[in-house]
């Protein structure tokens, strides 16, 4: 029972990170038909931006301030990288979805290569305040505080995103565009701006996901291809949740992460089953596709 609670907390924390990564992917795909292979890169860049902020600013600021600034830096870094990507690489290829996918693959390859050259392929450590490493005593078990940071971050972003999408004009444009991009244009709206915006928002969330993942799951270590290994799970979450659906991403992220945590602990201990946690997510995907090809929350076209 105690272990179950620990697994649940870390599953929800992982789910929060999957949600941050997947919701942006899902919006980008829903609005623009771009399967963004550079999304993992945005996560990685966020983590590196956080590392730079945390290590370059004077340590006299204190570890708590530094980590807050690093998280902000990661979010801005991810958003900035994504915005530039959209304007420079995606925009010239409008109407060529395959080329857009290909260019994100090339970009990911190139920049990850650059990171390996620049920072070395060994992992770098982000300094974090002691509080994040310490656990909190809940219901008879100790839960690492970092879990709460991820869960809180995910919840705040979910609420903010829901507000933005339902209350603001650009939010409405994005929702409408996911449904029928052409008709939005035919109302005289420049969808291109919404494209850039969605990339920036998606990239910012990815950057946040990148640094939170570092803090919660990698022991504060940053490495060049960490985002790419998360990306595959983000894809799985997006497809299970239904392309273009934020709520779908949120639910699917939790389901996938919890499944992964439970199976890898309860089954993965047996020899030959070490990867069952990861494998189970793909099996879940296959089942969902078989029963509901459009995903849990995907609209019937």
């Amino acid at each position: 029972m105690n272990i179950f609670l620990v697994l649940t907390f870390s599953g929800v924390a992982l789910g929060a990170i999957y949600f941050l990564a997947a919701s942006g992917l899902s919006l980008i795909y829903g609005l623009m038909d771009v399967l963004n292979f550079a999304h993992g890169l945005f996560m990685t860049l966020g983590a590196y931006a956080g590392y730079e902020v945390a290590t370059r600013l004077p340590s006299s600021l204190g570890a708590p301030t530094l980590i807050v600034l690093a998280i902000i830096g990661a979010t801005l870094g991810g958003g900035l990288a994504a915005g530039i990507t959209e304007l420079v690489l995606i925009r010239p290829l409008y109407g060529k979805p395959i080329s857009q996918i290909l260019i994100t693959i090339g970009l990911d390859l190139a920049v990850v290569g650059l990171l390996m050259g620049g920072f070395g392929s060994t992992a770098l450590q982000i300094p974090v305040p002691l509080w994040l490493i310490e656990p909190t005593h809940i219901g008879g078990v100790f839960i690492p505080n970092a879990n709460f940071l991820a869960i809180g971050g995910g919840a705040v972003v979910l609420l903010g995103l829901e507000w933005f999408l339902s209350r603001t004009r650009y939010g409405i444009i994005i929702r409408a565009g996911v449904e029928n991009r052409e008709m939005v244009r035919a109302l005289g709206i420049d969808v291109g701006r919404a494209f850039t915006l969605v990339f920036v928002i998606g990239g910012a969330m990815a950057g946040l996901a990148g640094i939170l993942y570092t803090i919660v799951f990698t022991g504060d270590l940053v490495s060049p291809s960490q985002g790419d290994s998360l990306l595959i799970f983000a894809f799985i979450v997006v497809v299970i949740g239904g392309l273009g659906s934020i709520r779908g991403s949120a639910v699917a992220a939790l389901v996938v992460a919890l499944l992964q945590e439970y199976t890898s602990f309860y089954i993965g201990g047996h020899s030959g089953w070490a990867q069952i946690g990861d494998l189970s997510t793909v099996l879940l995907l296959a089942v969902v596709l078989e029963l509901r090809p459009r995903g849990l929350f995907g609209r019937v076209a």
Binding site: R175, R185, I189, V191
Partner: peptide, 24 residues
Amino acid sequence: WPTHRIVRLGIGYVPEDRDVFSGL
């Protein structure tokens, strides 16, 4: 021209299949 620029010349469009945004 891109569509939005043409429309902003002052065009209202009622498409064949209504194309209202069903989720809105």
